[in-house]
Nucleic acid binder design. Sequence first.
DNA 1: TAACGCGAAAATAACGTTTTCTCAAAGCAT
DNA 2: ATGCTTTGAGAAAACGTTATTTTCGCGTTA
Lengths: 342, 342
Amino acid sequence: MTKASGRRSRRPTMVDVAREAGVALSTVSRVVNADPTVGAEFARRVQTAIDTLGYRPDEQAQQLRRGTSRTIGVAVREMSARNPLMAEFERGAYASGLTVFAASTADNEERERAVVLSMARRGFDGVLVEPIGPDHSYLAPEMAAGLAVVAIDRPITGPATDAVLADNAAGIRMAYRQLADHGHTRIAYIGDHERIFTARERADAFRACLRADGRPVTDMVHPGETEQARISEALRAVLSTESPATALVCGNVTTTFGVLTHLAAEVPRDQRPAIVGFDDFPLAGLLDPPMTVIAQDSPAMAHAALELMTARLAEPERGPEWVTVPVRLIARGSGERGPVVA
Amino acid sequence: MTKASGRRSRRPTMVDVAREAGVALSTVSRVVNADPTVGAEFARRVQTAIDTLGYRPDEQAQQLRRGTSRTIGVAVREMSARNPLMAEFERGAYASGLTVFAASTADNEERERAVVLSMARRGFDGVLVEPIGPDHSYLAPEMAAGLAVVAIDRPITGPATDAVLADNAAGIRMAYRQLADHGHTRIAYIGDHERIFTARERADAFRACLRADGRPVTDMVHPGETEQARISEALRAVLSTESPATALVCGNVTTTFGVLTHLAAEVPRDQRPAIVGFDDFPLAGLLDPPMTVIAQDSPAMAHAALELMTARLAEPERGPEWVTVPVRLIARGSGERGPVVA
DNA sequence: TAACGCGAAAATAACGTTTTCTCAAAGCAT
DNA sequence: ATGCTTTGAGAAAACGTTATTTTCGCGTTA
């Protein structure tokens, strides 16, 4: 150790290496960047100095100078929710030599702005964002300055960006169809608040299903907050009328959990409605009955997102592209029960 | 717009603002940093220029110059697993004016090294890391150079760092005690591979419980990989002897899922063993029977981690500190069933 | 032998900030 | 009016890199 236990050892810099090797600063840089024009003897000397000093380049300074960071940021509402997607995206990005950093927006519009802007100011080359609010005009100058933006799960309003979306409408239709095919005529929908894009798409698709079957829409579609109280209220509304719903479509996984919780506590097992939930989740198959769900294809979405991101990094001027990824129904039981004969 | 639709608009810089306002570069800096020595008229002029140009400081350059970033990195094995903890940590950090970026290490030792090192090279002030491998000597120079390191869930071997740990041994004892108190005398443990710190602590604690009760340890403790096949194998081993286990302790949530999956598929409902699982999970209460678990106090752990982090940022020379956070048993049913009378 | 290339290393100018240092003008007491 | 402190703005030097330009030694050729 050279000066190991000094009170506080500054990180060695290129200048230190140059001094140690007795060469010019720029020669060190050339060695570090494997410039072929550097002589063998010099390269050796510099490398030795690098090793003894334990030098490693300061990525921050590199990025400032180079103007590119090969780093992309992920701004999602909550880290866990989109997790299979993030994991897949991260793996793929890493394989392409990109670094990925994630931050959560806590479902807060202002926080999203702060997070994304901070990423841009740090020289991130791109951001994958699960957009929240209705206004994303703050992105325009960043995009003009070269930030690659890809929206996931919902499109961005304002500047036109790439986007990866799930086929929400098709998923809802599959759920509805599955229940209808098993004899249900009173099917209700409970989901997230329609201020959220996906929730709106799903609720709208569900209304369209009802209308297509010539069934009344009123009282059967219950979007709203995903708090337990609201969900319980909606459930009571659809289950305790004179002609109660015999089947439910849940708009997202939070709603599904809320519905299951309510039913377990308040409704006798043999009187529970059939259910199809949007979004798969662990243990879905171990519930009683096992949950039938509409599953999003997270790996495919992650792959598409990475594809769009790298394409845009390579060619910033290309037109924005939207990719819709199919969903599929996983029948496990809860959606295949017929109506309870009251 | 000044030069909006130009092919590619460079981000405005302090120099641009200075030119626009007709002042010196340093004056702009003083205005941005609210230096009180700047005259009112100048401040106004600069502010106007900032607004019209849409200037925002380049955090990268700021950090390079200041030598500090008020950013801390989180390197965890998987984003979802530690999520409640991360969410809480992020919230707290944000409230303290810190920015948090997360990256996953994919349970890969080399990847952890790359991620953490990259964070250090980018000028992150601290890292919260869920350590993987046995050797963390690579951290020593970084810590010497001022990187604040806090370990979560497991301690770091090599350089001495702060750490936040769950009280694994106490948790296992509670689980064992609960089952023993309900009449079980044949209790088995299935958990993660002992190369992982927490898994080793838990398996050891379980062995200690058996010994304390004067029970044989052999064949009742099954640490190993958490793949379904291995778990099933272990289960068959403990359940199909002549005096089979009547109760199980699962070492982590992955194991719990594997065990539940196996039992659901292969063992008739009325012959299933009692179970207590380490780590709580969503829907645990909706299973049949509802799962009794040892729950870690994620908010408390996050809080402790943030506490340690800020303390170290403020006082880098302080001695390393370990915090052990208590766990608690949540009795829901699966752990309160008596032995099956065969 | 002087001019000329040429290869390879050194010097230097950025990148966008912050901070230290200068220095002019203004204020004020003598 | 003179000298001395304030005040506040501008100039310039960092921070650790990379990219461009200069310099220099040396073998070729006219």
